[in-house]
Structure formats: structure tokens, C-alpha cells
């Protein structure tokens, strides 16, 4: 009887040891799996803001209220690659200063509230914005 009890105790110990061993192995297995999953996520492209491909954030002029023949500079703040800029004004004249800046002025027949428009485009499309310049006599 005593022998049987000892045998049972020994079997139970073995059982516990196997269970513990299995548990450790399971934990190790899980710990291995998690990095693998995270590696899979790393391979996917990161989520980006689509406006980074093409955006015209603002048009900024050195002045918005000018006299005739007074020159100001208007700059387009845009994001994206391979950008090209197109400028137009309903009244007044402009010449390009650099790729994003124009010089604007107006003569006597352009007195009033005038609209300057900038269109920016690349392979993703075209965006535009306007700025109002008041020309005083």
C-alpha cells in the first residue's frame, strides 16, 4: 500500500513536471509567434496622409492692400513632389521670381479688389487657391 502511494506520488510529480514543461514550451512558442506577427506588420506600407502627395496650404503676400505700381510678392506654400505652378490674375500683372513666388503689381486701370489664383499640379492632380489684393488709386 505504501509502495502504491509512493508510486502515485511519483506519477503525479511527473505529470506536473510535464505540464509545467508543456506550459513553458507553450509560452516560448507564443513569445516566438508575437515577434513573427509584428514582423509581418512591419512589412506593410505605413499609413500616410494623402495630402502629402499634393497640397496647397496657403498663398501669402507681403501686402494685401497696395497702391498702383506698388510691387508685392506672393508665395505659394505647397507640398508634394514634381510640383508645377500656374499663376493668373483677373487684373494686374505678374512675373515669376522663383518656382513658388511671383511679383505682382497693378496699373491705374486695375484699381479694385483683384483675384490672384495659383494652381499647383503634379501626377496626383491639381489644387488651387486664391488671394485677394486690393489696389487703391
Amino acid at each position: 500500500m505504501k509502495i502504491n502511494n509512493t508510486e502515485n506520488l511519483y506519477n503525479m510529480q511527473n505529470k506536473w513536471q510535464r505540464s509545467a514543461k508543456n506550459f513553458v514550451l507553450f509560452v516560448i512558442y507564443l513569445s516566438l509567434l508575437i515577434p513573427i506577427e509584428s514582423c509581418k506588420k512591419d512589412r506593410e506600407p505605413p499609413l500616410t496622409d494623402t495630402s502629402d502627395n499634393l497640397a496647397l496650404d496657403s498663398l501669402v503676400s507681403t501686402k494685401k492692400n497696395i497702391a498702383t505700381w506698388e510691387a508685392i510678392y506672393i508665395t505659394a506654400y505647397a507640398r508634394g513632389q514634381n510640383l508645377s505652378f500656374q499663376w493668373s490674375a483677373n487684373h494686374g500683372s505678374m512675373t515669376g521670381r522663383d518656382s513658388v513666388t511671383v511679383m505682382y503689381w497693378a496699373c491705374e486701370s486695375c484699381v479694385g479688389l483683384n483675384t490672384v489664383e495659383c494652381k499647383v499640379n503634379n501626377e496626383y492632380g491639381t489644387v488651387s487657391d486664391t488671394i485677394m489684393i486690393r489696389v487703391n488709386p
Binding site: Q86, W87, A89, S93, M94, G96
Partner: peptide, 8 residues
Amino acid sequence: QINGVTIP
């Protein structure tokens, strides 16, 4: 246009 700027 001249360099992307529409002339008057």
C-alpha cells in the same frame, strides 16, 4: 504665359 505666369 511666361514661366507659368499668365500675362495681362
